[in-house]
Design a protein around this nucleic acid. Structure first.
Lengths: 243, 243
DNA sequence: AGACTTTTAAATGTCAGACAAATAAAAATT
DNA sequence: AATTTTTATTTGTCTGACATTTAAAAGTCT
């Protein structure tokens, strides 16, 4: 069943893997309760702290949740799309920061993925999603908005575009790409003029989506990508010779 | 610094979050050694098992690695693209299986993302990557290949296509989408005739990539998507009325 | 002095037993 | 019958200990 050869490495890692496999293989169903820590330690012939370390590993991956009390215990989590976003975003953020990915590379990836959604979104976007985009555009045009808030709104707008494709798998995959870029975007200082240009492009995208004109959406996204890269390049240049 | 209010929830979760934040914020550098478990328990005013549970959580996310021995301890991991793949794949696999995503939805997402890479790949693919694709196509045409091996080769081919874009962020994002689909693909039984058709399309893709003809690549991917969906539909139909 | 072996110390990995806290079910009381 | 109290179960945490691994320090021999 969930046996455990005592040959190679950390017991807690082995136990975690055994339980993980049982979940993936469907041996353990969603919302099913695992044996109690005491029972698991009996079953695997290890101490309770070791079992606990294994369970914490699984909890870190959102594979299980724990509940205290009489009929408490560890339960198999239904990994929801929403719940998987955060993991995806954390991982992507770390990847981008630790591997010193260039802005260009990240930007290229982000827009390539987003353009993949555009045709589907043009076809399927709901009125609600369009309204969300319009609302974000309106927020972006308000004076006194911080750069951080501007970027956050930008992310929200693009999330709405992606969600418009009506494909949760796509939305999940892109959440990381779009949101993980935000820290990088935050490094750009947006002048009033650049904001105006971006908002204008955002409006074009919304209009095109309203008309369900996927060609126009794609073309505008390309424009937006080029403009974003240009902005980043200008900022980098200005910083290198501040005189 | 990495303080810890003892108000709300699990101490080990709080400590893990504190250390995680320190890593993300850059307060802890890659390959830097964390304080020993004893020191951490002193610092956070908790016991060593609690600290250990926190560290195991971080280890499960590949944020740290541990080493035994005299100058051992917990070290901040460089989260490599390669290393992030497995997490991405596990998460995506679980998502697909637990949420009963339809084959159509997963398939649509997968090809949408892949088509996003196609233009870049047509432009930048190396001779090596093309050779890899040719080799996989050759393998696919060998008789006696199991369905699992055929699918694995299929994954390898598409990975090569995606890698051809020369954008590690894209490759990382798509690894999950492509590989997580494999269990679903394995459920399709490939007849000799359907394999032949797929291989023919694969050859077309390789030819188009050799010619750096991105339009052709895209068109062929669309064909492949349609054919794949058709196959899945046929299998589903046949299973519903096995007479 | 230099190369090899032995010892030592530091660190993680594991264990055992205990108590605290939360929680739901069972029992008792009104 | 409804409410309160008790109880049992289970996770969360602590203390203290021992085992194992590993690198560096100490010692030994040529």
């Amino acid at each position: 069943m969930k046996i455990d050869p005592k040959k190679p490495a950390d017991l807690s890692a082995q136990i975690a893997q055994a339980i993980r496999d049982a979940i993936i293989s469907g041996e353990l169903i969603v919302d099913e309760r695992l044996p109690s820590e005491a029972e698991l330690s009996e079953q695997f012939q290890v101490s309770r702290p070791t079992v606990r370390e294994a369970l914490k590993r699984l909890a870190a991956q959102s594979l299980i949740r724990t509940q205290r009390g009489a009929s408490g215990g560890a339960f198999v989590n239904r990994l929801s799309f929403e719940g998987a976003y955060s993991q995806q975003i954390t991982t992507s953020t770390l990847l981008l920061s630790m591997n010193a990915v260039s802005f260009d590379t990240a930007c290229e990836a982000r827009f390539a993925l987003e353009r993949a959604c555009a045709p589907l979104s043009a076809q399927r976007r709901t009125a609600d999603q369009l309204a969300t985009m319009r609302a974000e555009i309106h927020r972006q045009s308000q004076p006194g908005l911080t750069d951080e808030a501007f970027c956050a709104s930008d992310v929200a707008l693009h999330r709405a575009l992606v969600d418009g494709a009506g494909n949760p798998v796509l939305s999940y995959q892109l959440a990381g790409a779009v949101e993980a870029m935000q820290p990088l975007m935050n490094m750009i200082t947006f002048t009033a003029r650049s904001r105006e240009a971006i908002i204008s492009l955002h409006n074009e995208i919304a209009d095109a989506l309203e008309d369900r004109d996927s060609t126009k959406v794609d073309a505008t996204l390309v424009e937006l990508e080029n403009y974003t890269r240009q902005l980043a390049q200008d900022v980098a240049q200005q910083r290198s010779k501040p005189a």
